[in-house]
Design a binder for these strands. Sequence first.
DNA 1: GTGAAAGCGCTAACAG
DNA 2: CTGTTAGCGCTTTCAC
Lengths: 364, 364
Amino acid sequence: MTTFVDLNVLGHYYCKLNLAIMSEKRLSLMDIAKSLNLSKTLVSMVVNNQGDEKGIAKKTQLLVWEKVKELNYKPNLMARGLRLGRSNTIGLIVSDISNPFYAKIARHIEKLIEPLGYNIIICSTDENHEKESRLKNLLKDRMVDGLIISTSQKDCKEFIELLDTKFPFVLIDRVMADIKPNSVYVDNFKGAFDAVTHLMNQGYVNIAAFAVSPIYVSTIKDRIEGYLQALRLNGLDHDKKFLKEIPFNDVKNSVKKELTQLLQEHDRIDALFAVNNNIAIACLDCLNEMRVKIPDDLAFVCFDDLEVFKFSQPSITAVAQPMEEIAKNAVDILMNVINSKESEPTTKQVVLQTTLNIRRSTVK
Amino acid sequence: MTTFVDLNVLGHYYCKLNLAIMSEKRLSLMDIAKSLNLSKTLVSMVVNNQGDEKGIAKKTQLLVWEKVKELNYKPNLMARGLRLGRSNTIGLIVSDISNPFYAKIARHIEKLIEPLGYNIIICSTDENHEKESRLKNLLKDRMVDGLIISTSQKDCKEFIELLDTKFPFVLIDRVMADIKPNSVYVDNFKGAFDAVTHLMNQGYVNIAAFAVSPIYVSTIKDRIEGYLQALRLNGLDHDKKFLKEIPFNDVKNSVKKELTQLLQEHDRIDALFAVNNNIAIACLDCLNEMRVKIPDDLAFVCFDDLEVFKFSQPSITAVAQPMEEIAKNAVDILMNVINSKESEPTTKQVVLQTTLNIRRSTVK
DNA sequence: GTGAAAGCGCTAACAG
DNA sequence: CTGTTAGCGCTTTCAC
């Protein structure tokens, strides 16, 4: 009887193994356990380097390792994740991963978490707050262990919920008024203020600004505030007359239209502040087509520094953000939250400073 | 007896539900099944929209849906994935996600697969083929349903393995000699050939090229071949004397060193071909520092078109790749493979054409 | 129409 | 030192 059952089991096993070899069906713990006449448990412990800790005979451990190598066994991370309740994956939610600013940040994050055994799932929201909610939930359902978010939300409802559930997350780049969850961002107000002040110090007076909607996004709002405040402090309050708002999903055309019109109507405009890299590129493209000379006809400064700005002709003055620092702080905080057992509701807001890289585009 | 057991179960349930509400522990199918006195099976069917198909009473379906909404139940995608053997995730492996070329492709892929219910996990390999292997296996262990890879492998061993296991994947951008798996790439040879030929048509004769190592990468190799072939056809065989190889991980410094040296030693060099966007940026930066005037002192052309090249001063002639097309073809092929039940070993190589955008940097 | 039970591959508590 | 067992949350026969 016993013999029969054993044979049966073995037969089943060999059949499976054969199949495994033939059709490359994945091996499981069971397969290698069976082939050594050991238990799954044992193999699991060894594979997870708990061999010594759990006092498993060195000899057995070796046996297991050899078989693992031989059959090239790899644990199924989904099964492990389900069991353990975590995935060793973190989610990154941004408006558009092809934006160099986010792409760089993503890369830094990737570099930082890789040695910790984590992977990153990246999602773009297109500045759509509903899509952001969907993606956030989707990633949670996929059991990511934490979220790094550059949010496009208008209100903080979603984040209050997220805080309530104690799900680990950290906001980067953009923050929300009213709530103070873990977050890492730069002083956008000051960055813009400094840039515009610099323009005025150079003697520019009629300074236009091109913002991107949705302008409720904190970064944009703060940069606009910085711009306006700098003007006000210098008694140059032209009252938003020179402030244009460009819709996110139609930057190119819209910039062209607005910029052409603006320069036609107000030929005394002598400087331009672009609120981010997308807008900057669109403006520069348009100015080039219009044969407007920088800085002779028009000075130009923007938020977000691109590599090319350093050596383009003329080189472009820009507000640089410390992208690596942002990533580093975000990862540090997130990993702390993930690894802190319970409680510890201390939240952290890290505010980093920008650098104004002064170049030819703003020097008369 | 029965009563006791039922009470016990119910008690357990309420306790759990309570806990769920208090600590926001995730709800499971079981929770909502219990709360309706139905079975998991039933709820699962309804939630997966198989209610009608399986002939479940409309009334019951409604009941389930209401509860699902009320308790905001979301299926655990990891558990589902484990059960179903798939994750609705695809992996993208590239050398560096912060390279605008890959970032754009990633974005296109993301857009294309989102409506299909798929997510993307992105990994960078740093041109390290071991890391690529690791990541490939890691993603497989995470049960991604397919892989899109711009490979840094030197030989095709890994891919033969991958083909053997019938794991769905498609190579993009870079391909391997000797094997022909599903792949989407551009005619790099012709792109480079056209660019260099254009230079010669403009009267440039001593054309240097800056490549990036590892040069066994197919894209780079083909572009160099295109460069050399164009020279040869015009009887301008300066025998790789003007061909420089820049290590991937030290582009900036290395370009500076090589370029300075090259221009000092050979003052008759009148044109430069940069083999990709990284190299191009480094070259332009360096040329700017050296006060070399483009195109008067030196003509400049590169592979990969960046947005800024269109309007920089001078505008830069570049070979543009159809990034959206690459993404589209890759996703199409991959999804076909994933969804084709078995067999169907037809592989597909899609070769797309590049566009030479002629601008000021190459026009005397 | 509905439910019980098996099992995806893994880990951890508990026995022996 | 090693093995048994009980799930993680889900889907899917198969039975009633």
